[in-house]
Design a binder for these strands. Structure first.
Lengths: 95, 95
DNA sequence: TTGACAGGCAAGTGACTGCTTGCCTATACA
DNA sequence: TGTATAGGCAAGCAGTCACTTGCCTGTCAA
């Protein structure tokens, strides 16, 4: 259920996770931890990233696919359309 | 400068302020307080709303026009484009 | 000039939140 | 079967944030 995509986006680490998943979709938790450290300079522990992924999943921005002992995370940018739909640009659809 | 539009959007009261300004642009602080209470059921004090407006202004989502002892607030949805530009929908190009 | 009105500044407080820490479950492979 | 790997759960801590409270500045009209 799309809990609160706004709160989900409020954290810089979570936004970095979305960036990472956009660049390489379907990463596991450990893969995300590694790449966040390497490419984004974030020293986040596994538990921290896991909690962030929970928030993103609650917001519907990340979907999860289980496979054996792995858990792959996929980006879903769909819920973000709500934002620009709520406050459209003045020269666009607003009447 | 556009501080952090994500943190600015994280609060429900601030989103209600944006809603209000979209419906009726150029409101003063007291006008906003009244309409937030009436139409959105928010019992926000003047100071609380004022602090929210500061955050929205920092984020570039609200611009301010002074006139005598009044201060009118205007909505600017431009910075919101950054969000959908950063994570575009997979099947549509950003435009 | 006086008083009412519109808004500003700053310290204090309670709740939330991101993160750590420690321990646990489950799957794969030797 | 035993062990390393991938991930989960929950309590505790510290920083942040929204909100209040109290007082101050600036504008306008009578």
């Amino acid at each position: 259920m799309a809990a609160d995509i706004y709160k989900a986006l409020a954290d810089a680490t979570r936004r970095a996770i979305l960036d990472e998943l956009q660049e390489r979709d379907g990463q596991s938790l450990f893969e995300l931890c590694t790449r966040l450290t390497m490419r984004h300079g974030l020293g986040s522990t596994r538990q921290a990233v896991s909690q962030h992924l929970d928030v993103l999943q609650e917001a519907g921005l990340v979907t999860v696919r289980r496979e054996g002992r792995y858990k792959f995370h996929h980006l879903d940018t769909g819920p973000l359309r709500e934002i620009t739909a709520r406050w459209p640009a003045p020269d666009q659809g607003e009447s």
